[in-house]
Each structure stands twice: as structure tokens, then as C-alpha cells.
Design a protein around this nucleic acid. Sequence first.
DNA 1: TCTACTTAGTTGTAGCGTCAACTATTCCGA
DNA 2: TCGGAATAGTTGACGCTACAACTAAGTAGA
Lengths: 162, 162
Amino acid sequence: MVGMSEDVWLSDDQQRAWVRFISVVERLPGVLDTQLQHDADLTHFDYFTLAMLSEAPNRTLRMTELAAVTNASLPRLSHVVSRLEKRGFIERTPCPGDRRATNAQLTDSGWEKVGATAPGHVGTVRDYVIDPLDEQDVADLHRIMGKILGKLDPENRLRVQR
Amino acid sequence: MVGMSEDVWLSDDQQRAWVRFISVVERLPGVLDTQLQHDADLTHFDYFTLAMLSEAPNRTLRMTELAAVTNASLPRLSHVVSRLEKRGFIERTPCPGDRRATNAQLTDSGWEKVGATAPGHVGTVRDYVIDPLDEQDVADLHRIMGKILGKLDPENRLRVQR
DNA sequence: TCTACTTAGTTGTAGCGTCAACTATTCCGA
DNA sequence: TCGGAATAGTTGACGCTACAACTAAGTAGA
């Protein structure tokens, strides 16, 4: 069983760290979703999708690339983009050069939506995650999440610098 | 706006740490769910619910307490317990002393299910989270998640020692 | 003890995500 | 250049979660 760990249970220290970590993993999405849903009628995933497009060259990405940077499956992304397209935030255009592929492009309306939504969202991120941490914590968080992400995303499809 | 942060965007260091962190938060539940669904026909939340009961005195907790330790809303928990009850892993009994309340108790079958499922689940946790970290990382993770949890769960309804 | 409020929990509905199935296109080897 | 495999993406059905509405029971003030 290559890749499977030998030892079965966790040490006390590991157990304590894991319980806290998984609690944060369970609760954080709800907090982010609630704020965005209330203030902008967007899920956190909706917002993240728009935000990734807003930073892409020409505000455009192919569906597969967009799925990678948003940590999503292609079916999930396709459904989400359909909804955002109906609301006028994204436009789908066939990709010249590969007729199987689809480009998702942020519309002007989508660009404005991101700009209008960002401050409230960032405020939430600060309040719950960043502000309670000092500089050393932020550096440690970056290092640790990098190691875990190396396992979760071994191909580095997210193009986060390592 | 008490509690709202003054500064609007994040520093580069903060931004990088946040992007990695949120990527892990988005991906980890899928990995845990996939393994448990495949090997035990349980969601991670199902498993966590059974596991919390298995550690409780008399393998029993009131619904409200169980919701707190599993990081869930009461409606969510109620639905999940209904399903697990149908499968014979949990039994609901009215709480003597407060007739509004309901006790959820792990059955023998549920106890066996946890025992049979734990090794595979822990293996996944090790593979993706614990094993890539050294001792210092685990200590740092514990400290940092404690700080964030202090914001997400200010009442400390989770009875994690602080 | 009557009423209003709070707490505990359940249920129904609507929305989102996963999985499997499907179409369309491109790639590749003989 | 033909046929099989791989890639890109969409769609539909089903299961899980959030939210709101609800029932039932305890609590507290007049």
C-alpha cells in the first residue's frame, strides 16, 4: 500500500491539532458564504470564480483552467458559470483554435460586481482569519498550507508559487 | 462598525497565505468525503458525528451538544441523525428531565461501524495532512487554528481546551 | 395562573455539488 | 486516412445543507 501510513492512530499532539483544524475547515465556509450571500447574493465559490477571472489576462480563462484555480470539478464549474452567465457577470465564448474548449470571460457588470463585493468580503477574511494572527503566524500558515497543498494538488494545477 | 477592520486589502504575505489556506479549505472536505463514501458509505460529517458519540459518556449526547461539537446547525444535525437512525447506527430517545430535548445514542452497530471505519479515515488524514508536517508544523497548526477558532466559535461551544 | 418569551428540536423547500452519462472535438498510431 | 482513445465541456438526477416555518415544552413576570 504505497502512500498509506504505517501507524494507525495519531499522537495526542497530532490529534489536538487535527480536531482544531477540521473544526475551522467545517466552519469557515459557512461564515464566508453567509456574509457574501447576505451582502451580494453570491456564494463564496461564485465570488472566487469572478475574482479569479478578474485577475486573468483579458479577464478570460478556459473552463479547465478556471476549474483548476478555483479548486473545483469541471461539472461544478459548468453549473456555476451557467448561473453567473444568466445574471450577466460572465460570458461564454467558443475558444478559437480548439473547438472543444470554452472561454469564460468576465463582463463589465461582473467586474463591477467583484469591485463592489471585495471590501466586505476582505473585511470578513480579516476579522475571522488574518487579524487574529501575527506576522509569524501568517508565515507559518503559508508554510504549512503549502505542505498540505503539495499533497492535495500534487500536479500544482493551482499555479501558486512553491 | 465595531469589529470591522479598517484596512481594506491584504498585504502580499497575507494574500499568499490566505490563497493557500482557502484552497486547502476547499479541497480537503472532498478528499475526506470521497474516501469515506467509497469505503464506508458515509460522509465525513456522518463519520464525525458517530465518532463524537463514541467518545461521549454512555455514547450519548443531547442533540444541541452534538451539534456544537460537530460544528453543525441543529437542522443539519437533525437530518443527518434521521438518516443514521434509519441505518441503525444511532438511536433517539427522549431526554428524561427535559421533555423538549432528545438524546442521540450510538448503537452497538454504530460503535462497530466507527471502529471498522476509523483506520482508513485516519490513514487519509495522515497521508494528506499529518505526515507532510513535522513536529514544529503540528504545534504551529494547533496554535494558529486555536486563534482562528477563537473568532469562529467565541463561546467555545466546542470544548477544545484553549 | 395567565401570558409572553425563550429554548429544543423537526420538517419542508429550494439551491448547490457529485457522479454518471453524454456530445463534440482532437490526437495518435497503423 | 481511418478508427480508437483521450480531452473539453454540458446535462440530468440524486443527495446533502441552509433557511424559514413550525410544534412542543420550559421559564419568568404580573
